[in-house]
C-alpha cells in the first residue's frame, strides 16, 4: 500500500534581514548577506522553501580576550592584539561571511575604553574587511548606550547589525539604528514572551520588522541547549502560523556559550579521560551549532576556525 507522507502547510513565512550595504547602496561592503524567508521548519524542503542558507559570523574582540582558553587563542595568537588583522584573518583564511566585533574593551572590568576607542576599532575593521559587520556592546546598559550610539554614527549607511537591545534598554539603540540605517538585535533571556515583547517595543519605535533579529539566548550542549531549542521551535511555529512579532530571523551566540562549558575548555591535564581539549573544544562548539541550525538559527556567531569549517560543511550538506 502506498503511504502518503503527511505534510504541513504553513500560511506565513519567516521575515528576512539584510546586513551590509554595497557602494551602490551607500556603504562600502563588497557584498551583503540576507537570511530568513523560510516558509517551513528548518531544512524541511518537502514542506516549503528555505531561500537563504544560514550563515556564520566569526566573532572577534576589540581587546585581547585573556580569559579565552588556549585552544581558542591558538589560531589567532598573532592577530588578537589588532581587531582589523583579526577580522582579516577570519575572512581571508577562514572564509567568514560576516564579522562580529564585540566591544568588550569598553566594559569597566575590561579596560573601560572610550566610545571614541570603540569607534576607531569598528572603523579599522570596516576598512580591513569588506564583509558585513555585526557590532556588540558588553551588556552594561549605560556604557552600551554611549558606545553603541557612537559606533552606529561612525558606521552610518553600512547597514550593520547592532546589539543587544533588551526589554529594559532598547530606546537609545533603536533610535540610533533608525537614524543611521542599521538593524538591531533584540535579546530575551530564553523567554518567548519577553522575546515577543521586546520586538513589539522596538517596532513601536518605528524600526521595521525586516531590521530586527531575535537573539533568543541559547545554552550550549549540556547547558540548557534543549531548552533554547524548544523556545526557538515554538517561536518559529508561531511565526509560520502568522505571528509577525516572532517572525524575525534568529541570531545564536554559539561560540560564546559553547566556550563557557568546562567540557569545551577544561584541559586534559585536569580531566584525564576527556581527551585532548584541542579537539574537544571545537567539537563542543560544532555540536552546539548543529543543534541551533536545526532549531532555526539563521546567523551563528562562532569562534574556533575548525568548528566554523565543520559547521559550514554541515550547512552545505543540509542545503543540498
Amino acid at each position: 500500500m502506498a503511504v502518503d507522507l503527511l505534510k504541513e502547510k504553513w500560511q506565513n513565512k519567516v521575515g528576512t534581514i539584510t546586513i551590509g550595504a554595497t557602494k551602490a547602496e551607500g556603504g562600502t561592503r563588497a557584498s551583503t548577506v540576507t537570511v530568513g524567508g523560510q516558509s517551513t521548519l528548518p531544512f524541511m524542503f518537502g514542506e516549503g522553501d528555505m531561500p537563504n542558507k544560514p550563515v556564520i559570523a566569526m566573532e572577534i574582540f576589540d581587546i585581547i580576550p585573556e580569559e579565552w582558553p588556549a585552544t581558542l587563542k591558538e589560531p589567532f595568537k598573532d592577530v588578537m592584539n589588532d581587531p582589523a588583522k583579526w577580522a582579516k584573518k577570519c575572512v581571508d583564511e577562514h572564509k567568514a561571511e560576516l564579522i562580529c566585533i564585540k566591544l568588550q574593551g569598553t566594559h569597566f572590568d575590561f579596560g573601560n575604553r572610550s566610545d571614541a576607542d570603540a569607534a576607531a576599532a569598528v572603523n579599522a575593521v570596516l576598512e580591513a574587511v569588506s564583509v558585513p559587520l555585526i557590532i556588540l556592546g558588553t551588556g552594561d546598559e549605560e556604557k552600551d548606550n554611549k558606545v553603541l550610539a557612537k559606533v552606529s554614527e561612525v558606521s552610518k549607511g553600512q547597514k550593520c547589525l547592532i546589539g543587544d537591545a533588551t526589554d529594559k534598554n532598547y530606546k537609545t539603540l533603536a533610535a540610533s539604528c533608525l537614524a543611521d540605517g542599521h538593524s538591531i538585535i533584540a535579546e530575551s533571556p530564553i523567554d518567548i514572551n519577553i522575546a515577543k515583547q521586546v520586538n513589539i517595543l522596538i517596532s513601536d519605535m518605528g524600526l521595521p520588522q525586516e531590521r530586527i533579529a531575535i537573539n533568543p539566548t541559547i545554552g550550549a550542549l549540556g547547558y540548557g541547549m534543549e531548552y533554547a531549542y524548544s523556545i526557538m521551535e515554538r517561536a518559529r511555529l508561531a511565526a509560520l502560523n502568522g505571528d509577525k512579532m516572532l517572525s524575525m530571523p534568529f541570531v545564536c551566540f554559539v561560540g560564546q556559550e559553547a566556550w563557557r562549558a568546562k567540557e569545551a575548555k577544561g584541559p586534559q591535564s585536569e580531566h584525564e579521560d576527556w581527551g585532548p581539549e584541542s579537539t574537544r573544544g571545537p567539537l563542543w562548539e560544532f555540536m552546539t551549532a548543529t543543534c541551533m541550525l536545526q532549531a532555526g538559527g539563521d546567523i551563528l556567531i562562532m569562534r574556533h576556525p575548525k568548528a566554523v569549517e565543520e559547521t559550514r560543511k554541515y550547512i552545505a550538506n543540509l542545503m543540498k
Binding site: 522575546a195 515577543k196 512579532m245
Partner: peptide, 15 residues
C-alpha cells in the same frame, strides 16, 4: 492560540 507577551493586545493588531 497566540503567544503571550505584556503587549499582547497591541501584538494582535500587528498581524
Amino acid at each position: 492560540k497566540n503567544i503571550y507577551c505584556d503587549s499582547y493586545l497591541d501584538a494582535y493588531k500587528k498581524k
